[in-house]
Design a protein around this nucleic acid. Structure first.
Lengths: 216, 216
DNA sequence: CGGGGCCTTGATGTCGTTCAACGTATGTGG
DNA sequence: CCACATACGTTGAACGACATCAAGGCCCCG
């Protein structure tokens, strides 16, 4: 479920599924500039963060210098979950991004409200895991485009605010390969690339077929 | 749903770390035989499952026939989380496995008790995701062995109840490669392989170094 | 004794990383 | 306004790693 451009002060709750969070949402709204850090690996955790607009990348830099992104968060997504009191991942703004900081208590009310959200995060990560498990790079890219399309309301015109290197680090693929696969898709008539940060999906069925992600 | 050798009425609680769950744990204890299904993709969800002994694999078969495993669950692990009322993954017993079925309510008490558990699952999956994002197969195997060692109490002698094909499907690698890499580790003196389902880690530091998973 | 899993090992081909060069857009200071 | 710098993106060439195909070994069970 995508809350696009959800602004403060609106009492309407899309879906009405997170009343507790909504009530506390008068907490600070912070604007992060492109590539600025929301939190870093190793910093103390405790708060949750909800994206109001823009895009955030969550990831980690491993000991050997590789950078792996776990997820992108768009408007409506909540991130910052940790199983202990430390952030094991970093969070950075991909573009100019508005983030509302939530400070849920550890009481029952908070748990009830947050449970569906953390399950949603879990679900999304599991899906991503399926993608990374595959060996074919086309599948990964195809799936990525499908995922972005879904999360942006199944529009055919998908916006990709992140650079190619982010896509690569998200999919476990070199950024050169990202570029090449996109060209290949374009040549096959599956997508159009109006500009570097937009992709128009011309043949969604084909894309789904390539990704092969769907369960049997 | 198959209840093999379904027994009831055991009150002993290993660990006793999850009071709420423990109280309800007089629920059924089921014994699943090797390779039997706990639940399948597409079946209705609702319950949680706690492994008492043995090992469970969680995964999915994708449209193109590939099988991807998301996680292994050992004694004490809780699985079966879903964001809606359907299982999107299957769960199968790797070996003879005892599972206690929990039927938590949707009340606050349940949420509070379960929250740390689902966060733990989330954490584990995120770590696994980091591994799958890497390109080198040695890293994946090294990390797998480290993970198994950790979860079995940092013993040097690690038990691998699952077949090589499961390891491969878990790591996104062909089972032949799993076999080859293990041999390579053995030849380098990093591990010993007393029998096919046991690995003795001789040089844990080296293994950690190969995996390169640790954050900076 | 025969059959079927599971594991190992070898040979081969392919796909993706890596290295390298170039193109393009945006911003900065002279 | 132009020269330059910087970041991002595209494209090419070549090597190497891993999947795939294939064969054989081991063990358990019928």
């Amino acid at each position: 479920m995508n809350f696009h451009f959800h602004r403060q002060g609106e009492d309407t709750q899309p879906g009405g599924m997170t009343p507790y969070i909504a009530r506390r949402a008068q907490d600070a709204l912070s604007i992060y500039r492109t590539n600025s850090e929301v939190y870093g690996q190793g910093e103390p955790s405790g708060s949750l963060y909800r994206v109001e607009f823009g895009c955030v990348r969550i990831g980690r830099v491993t000991a050997d210098g590789r950078r792996q992104l776990c997820s992108f968060c768009f408007a409506g997504d909540v991130f910052g979950w940790e199983s202990d009191d430390e952030h094991h991942f970093f969070a950075e703004a991909v573009e100019e991004t508005g983030i509302r900081i939530l400070r849920p208590g550890r009481d029952s009310e908070a748990s009830i409200a947050l449970f569906p959200l953390v399950l949603k995060s879990l679900r999304r990560i599991q899906e991503h895991l399926l993608v990374l498990g595959g060996t074919k790079v086309d599948e990964r890219l195809a799936d990525f485009l499908c995922e972005m399309a879904e999360r942006q309301g199944d529009e055919c015109l998908v916006r990709l605010p992140m650079p190619r290197s982010d896509v690569g680090d998200y999919l476990g693929v070199s950024f050169e390969t990202v570029s090449r696969i996109l060209r290949r898709f374009k040549e096959r008539g599956i997508i159009r690339i109006p500009d570097t940060h937009s992709v128009e999906i011309l043949d969604m069925d084909c894309l789904h077929e390539i990704s092969g992600r769907a369960s049997v």
